[in-house]
């Protein structure tokens, strides 16, 4: 399925005029399931950060840094950068 981006105003108008099973109380059908699952998951363009071999242990990074003679880059956020931020 191609992921489409639609103008917000057009989408709002469509939301007023059209019905959708998920929104209006019906179950999600097996036919809708795979399409929705794919739509919601990250697209390849959203996964470039995975090309960097991020570690998740500062102590492990410290050990690897001294073994390889490299400095450490720490990306520290309130909410894990590789999780919920």
């Amino acid at each position: 399925m191609t992921v489409r981006r639609c103008p917000l105003a057009f989408g709002l108008l469509a939301a007023l005029l059209l019905t959708s099973s998920a929104r209006d109380g019906d179950s999600i059908t097996p036919e809708q399931f795979a399409k929705l699952h794919k739509l919601i998951k990250p697209q390849p363009s959203e996964q470039k950060w995975e090309q960097i071999p991020w570690l998740v242990s500062l102590w492990e990074a410290r050990g690897q840094a001294t073994r390889e003679g490299k400095p450490i880059l720490l990306w520290e956020m309130d909410g894990h950068p590789l999780g919920c931020t």
Binding site: V3, R4, R5, P7, L8, G11, A14, S20, L39
Partner: peptide, 17 residues
Amino acid sequence: FTRLLDRDANGELCDAD
């Protein structure tokens, strides 16, 4: 994974812009 969605002209869910 969580994503903001929208509806296209056919009422189908799509990625929100």
